[in-house]
Amino acid sequence: MKLFSNTINNLEQALSQSTTKQRVISNNIANVDTPNYKAQDVRFNNALSNEMQKLQANKTNNKHFVFGSTSSGYQITNRANTNYQHNGNNVDIDKEMTEMAKNQIHYNALIDRLSSKFSSLKTVIKGGN
């Protein structure tokens, strides 16, 4: 028997992803003055991974790509093709602060929705009182 709906599980996964993104952004901001530091991005691939799992491909050559998904649902990549500072650092502090604010709004919305789901469960358990 499943205790919680898929909504709660999806919210939990979204909160985990938002937390990861916040950690990466914070790390970029902390290293804004570090020489030769390359900013990182988080790429989420859940939708792509879900669709890729549906594909059935016949691998006829060892050089062919394997279809499937990563277990974590995200990938952390470096932005290595730019330099914003003379010391080789490519952290754009304005971009990072904007992304952090957007991520915080997203995180707060997820928390509000999760709280609402638990409030509904609490009402049902108490019998509507």
Results as ranks from 00 to 15, higher is better:
1 M>T: 05
1 M>W: 02
3 L>A: 04
4 F>K: 08
5 S>Y: 03
5 S>Q: 01
6 N>T: 03
7 T>S: 09
8 I>C: 01
10 N>A: 15
11 L>N: 02
12 E>K: 15
12 E>R: 10
12 E>Q: 14
13 Q>I: 10
15 L>T: 03
17 Q>Y: 12
18 S>P: 04
18 S>T: 15
19 T>F: 10
20 T>K: 15
21 K>E: 00
21 K>Y: 00
22 Q>Y: 15
22 Q>E: 10
23 R>Y: 08
26 S>F: 08
29 I>Q: 07
29 I>W: 08
32 V>M: 07
32 V>K: 12
33 D>G: 03
34 T>Q: 02
36 N>H: 15
37 Y>D: 04
37 Y>A: 06
38 K>Q: 09
39 A>Y: 07
40 Q>D: 08
40 Q>Y: 04
41 D>M: 06
43 R>W: 05
45 N>V: 09
46 N>T: 10
46 N>E: 14
46 N>P: 06
46 N>I: 09
47 A>D: 13
48 L>W: 11
48 L>E: 11
49 S>Q: 12
49 S>N: 11
49 S>R: 08
52 M>H: 10
53 Q>F: 08
53 Q>R: 14
53 Q>G: 07
54 K>Q: 13
55 L>M: 11
55 L>H: 05
56 Q>V: 15
56 Q>N: 13
57 A>G: 09
61 N>S: 09
66 V>L: 12
67 F>P: 06
68 G>I: 14
69 S>V: 10
71 S>L: 14
72 S>A: 15
73 G>W: 01
74 Y>T: 07
75 Q>F: 09
75 Q>M: 14
77 T>N: 15
80 A>Y: 05
81 N>M: 12
81 N>D: 15
82 T>K: 15
82 T>P: 01
83 N>F: 00
83 N>H: 07
84 Y>F: 15
84 Y>N: 10
86 H>E: 11
90 N>E: 07
94 D>H: 11
96 E>P: 00
99 E>C: 04
99 E>W: 04
100 M>E: 00
102 K>T: 09
102 K>L: 12
102 K>Q: 12
103 N>P: 03
109 A>G: 03
110 L>Y: 02
111 I>W: 07
112 D>P: 05
117 K>I: 08
119 S>P: 04
120 S>A: 07
123 T>Q: 09
123 T>L: 15
125 I>G: 00
127 G>E: 02
129 N>P: 00
